[in-house]
Amino acid sequence: MVWEFFKAGGDEQLEEIEGLIVQMLLDCRHTFDLAINAVVSGTEAAAVGKTIRKSDRRVNKAERKVRRQLVVHVSVRGERADLPRVLVTTSIIKDIERVGDYAKNVWDLADAGIDLSQAADVDSLLELRDRTSNLIAESARIVGDRDTGAAESLLKELEDVLDEYDDCIQAQIESTGTPRDAVPRALLCRYLKRITAHLMNVLTSLVMPFDRLDYYDEDKADRD
């Protein structure tokens, strides 16, 4: 512990925190992959439940660690603390933690007995799975690299994705099928929309000022 003081370098504390954020995103992806496969790929829900909870606890633990490190950063640096960056970080770790929570909600569907692996629309569900999983991974890469260009173009693409999820939910509301067919799909689309919206909040932290963060998890009409 004492050695920490004498180690080379010293001014990269916020970079270290960014590393933790990337790790949180990768843990969320892991949780999501396990959870969605239990719904759409036939993985047994009980078999992955323990791993999902462990991964979620890791995300929550990382969130607390980031918060502690930010308190230390502000306490030590005082007026020289990079406050906008600190505030942005507190905002996005909450979004990442929510991504983990929604991934867990996806698993809750499987745990409640929902298995869509044999459904007629399984291919489109697998497509949603891959898209969301890749989106989490890409967000982690963009945050890690601070790739503002990629963040901007991805945000533009994702606006349409949010609309797609709204359409999906609407389609289930209007569906003439059984509740057992419609409800899980509506919930799944809702969870995927929320995951996407929270990831968009994370991405906006790279391209927007602090006061304009955090609105993508609201409906389009409420954002302005």
Binding site: V2, E4, F5, G10, Q13, S75, V76
Partner: peptide, 22 residues
């Protein structure tokens, strides 16, 4: 100013590993 990073790192170590002689 020179030591801020090292102080921050040391404080983080205390937070994660507790008190005592260290």
């Amino acid at each position: 100013l020179v030591m801020a990073g090292r102080i921050e790192r040391s404080m983080n170590a205390v937070l994660s590993k507790g008190g005592g002689l260290a």
